[in-house]
Design a protein around this nucleic acid. Sequence first.
DNA 1: AAGAGCATGTAAGCTGTTACATGATTAT
DNA 2: ATAATCATGTAACAGCTTACATGCTCTT
Lengths: 212, 212
Amino acid sequence: MAKAAISKLGCALLGLLQQRPSSGYDLRKIFSTTAMTTYSDSPGAIYPALQRLQQRGCIRGSIESGSGMRRRQVFRLTAQGTAELRKWIARPVLRADIIRGLDEVMLRFAFSEQAVGPSASVRILQSLQAGLASYIRDLHAQLGAGKTTMPTSGRLALESGIKGYECLLRWTKDALGTYRSRNIAPPRDGRPKDQEMKVWSSELKETKKLKN
Amino acid sequence: MAKAAISKLGCALLGLLQQRPSSGYDLRKIFSTTAMTTYSDSPGAIYPALQRLQQRGCIRGSIESGSGMRRRQVFRLTAQGTAELRKWIARPVLRADIIRGLDEVMLRFAFSEQAVGPSASVRILQSLQAGLASYIRDLHAQLGAGKTTMPTSGRLALESGIKGYECLLRWTKDALGTYRSRNIAPPRDGRPKDQEMKVWSSELKETKKLKN
DNA sequence: AAGAGCATGTAAGCTGTTACATGATTAT
DNA sequence: ATAATCATGTAACAGCTTACATGCTCTT
């Protein structure tokens, strides 16, 4: 049962719900207010996604309706949902992930510390670093091959991509340094022993208009 | 008629076909071989996309079948297809484009010089530069607001995004410098008068396996 | 003759987009 | 009261993914 993979949006929702139980509307607000605008805040995407997650048993919603309160359904992760979230985060970073879904890798990294622990963050950074270094080499080769025949804009576009990856590679090293200075043991293998759970982004409660 | 927008993949195909008439298989090879791997090389995406473009009147395919040759259908841009390609490239770069579809902006830039002319490239770079500068300001504000409450991985992820945009902004300035040194007049308004058409990426003919 | 690669497609399924729809509650 | 906002949904549509299917040609 539940063979198909959870969609990227679904994983993003799992990650957010792990940080704090929320209603669909809360989640839409996050997507429309914060740097997560890369994801859609449209109800036609979020509510069906929540339903799917619930059918899978990853989340459970409870309707809150006190007197003088609007009806709202608050979703929480189930044990299974937590497991799925961790599985998603712990997936190895392959070249395909770097090429087609770098944003998803960054999302996994963003949730990694809270949902699994710092060692998972380090693991993502390490495989990302390796994958980037290898891919950058290939891109340089491609640039060298077509340098003379490509039009300026094409060459520049390729260069922009390469520079972006190089920038990310530098950031990866910095980030690893941050964790090293915090004395996070490099994850040789085995499971992480840390499980710190903190709630952040508490300032996301601000009101903001949302049109349907 | 033909109100719905052409999909991103469709536009990518238009751009490639403008550079050189190609069969579906040729296009798949480009997507699987070059830095355009970000786009799918699956036949289930490309052949239907080509059909849609043909139904719209943007491209026209002609079946080539000499003796001792495999049947292959080569597609060419029509006048309307060229117009649609130019319209897509000339679209102003909005913040939404930067947030949700930066890759599409870069694709438009990559094709801009051949399909429209250097002044179109410059125009894209200028609006991109402005949009990036403004967006980066907002992201810095967000980072400052949540710096203390966010977990390390979340903060680092946001920083990585910001650094990526800053890197792109620097590239934008470099690229504008390249065009300035080539004496491309800044496009005050009106249409570009240049229309240089060269064929590049002639080395993409190399063979490479593609599994169905 | 057999297998690998060329070249084109189709069909099912899922997901996101866009647009619409519905009530309840708070503000003016 | 009326409008705006809260909060949740649904329905039609388009596009991509995955998997399958089909013949033809070249190599060995």
